[in-house]
Simulated scan of single mutants.
Amino acid sequence: MTYDLVALTAKAPNIRAAIDAMAHASPALRVRGAGSGAVIQLCDDEGRPLLNIEAAQRVDVEGEVERLLGPGAADGLTVPYWWVEVRASGDGDRPAALAHRFADDLVRRLGGRVWSARPAPADPGPGPGEGGR
């Protein structure tokens, strides 16, 4: 089962903000590139991807995000802004909670908002071997 969300950021995501947001999601996960560099994966100790984070896409057309995601999805944002798609995979609430931790922290750093078609699950806290932050 996958869980998708979109971080719409007011500022262009930079390497520092992305790395800090990944560490906020879980400092114990391993980072792996995929998709010829267009995707960053956060993986568990066995190498299973828990999060796929796609490269940021610049949004230049007013109303385009609302057309794709629905009314109010980009409230408070003015073009240009950036679309960062995050897909969590795996069982239980942990992967979806990791996705929200990453996206929420990225938006906290860069401004914007997080969109998901489904409500955020309760955060079960760190998984085995993740430790706390």
Results as ranks from 00 to 15, higher is better:
residue 84 V to I: 07
residue 12 A to T: 09
residue 124 P to N: 07
residue 16 R to T: 12
residue 125 G to N: 08
residue 105 D to M: 12
residue 117 A to D: 12
residue 117 A to P: 01
residue 29 L to I: 01
residue 58 R to C: 06
residue 15 I to G: 13
residue 20 D to E: 15
residue 86 V to F: 00
residue 109 R to Q: 15
residue 60 D to H: 03
residue 23 A to T: 12
residue 128 P to Y: 08
residue 121 P to D: 01
residue 130 E to Q: 09
residue 97 A to H: 10
residue 36 S to K: 03
residue 110 L to M: 14
residue 125 G to Y: 07
residue 19 I to Q: 06
residue 88 A to S: 08
residue 26 S to G: 12
residue 120 A to I: 00
residue 53 I to T: 08
residue 62 E to Y: 04
residue 6 V to E: 00
residue 4 D to H: 02
residue 57 Q to S: 05
residue 76 G to L: 07
residue 1 M to Y: 02
residue 121 P to N: 06
residue 89 S to R: 02
residue 9 T to P: 11
residue 62 E to C: 01
residue 53 I to K: 09
residue 118 R to W: 08
residue 30 R to K: 11
residue 40 I to S: 07
residue 106 L to Q: 12
residue 10 A to N: 09
residue 21 A to S: 15
residue 10 A to R: 15
residue 27 P to E: 10
residue 9 T to F: 13
residue 126 P to S: 03
residue 90 G to V: 01
residue 41 Q to E: 15
residue 8 L to M: 15
residue 78 T to L: 02
residue 121 P to E: 04
residue 77 L to V: 03
residue 94 R to L: 15
residue 54 E to H: 14
residue 110 L to S: 13
residue 63 G to D: 14
residue 6 V to R: 03
residue 129 G to P: 06
residue 115 W to M: 10
residue 8 L to V: 14
residue 65 V to M: 13
residue 107 V to R: 13
residue 69 L to N: 10
residue 92 G to R: 10
residue 99 A to Y: 13
residue 77 L to A: 04
residue 83 W to I: 03
residue 133 R to D: 12
residue 28 A to R: 12
residue 59 V to H: 00
residue 5 L to M: 08
residue 72 G to M: 11
residue 46 E to T: 15
residue 90 G to F: 02
residue 84 V to W: 00
residue 19 I to L: 12
residue 89 S to I: 02
residue 18 A to V: 10
residue 38 A to Y: 05
residue 31 V to A: 05
residue 31 V to E: 12
residue 65 V to T: 15
residue 24 H to F: 14
residue 98 L to W: 15
residue 5 L to P: 05
residue 78 T to G: 05
residue 32 R to T: 01
residue 83 W to N: 08
residue 67 R to P: 00
residue 32 R to I: 00
residue 39 V to C: 03
residue 74 A to V: 07
residue 54 E to D: 05
residue 57 Q to R: 13
residue 44 D to H: 07
residue 42 L to P: 00
residue 98 L to K: 13
residue 127 G to F: 05
residue 63 G to K: 13
residue 49 P to M: 10
residue 58 R to D: 02
residue 13 P to I: 01
residue 27 P to S: 09
residue 97 A to T: 05
residue 10 A to E: 14
residue 28 A to W: 05
residue 21 A to T: 09
residue 122 A to L: 07
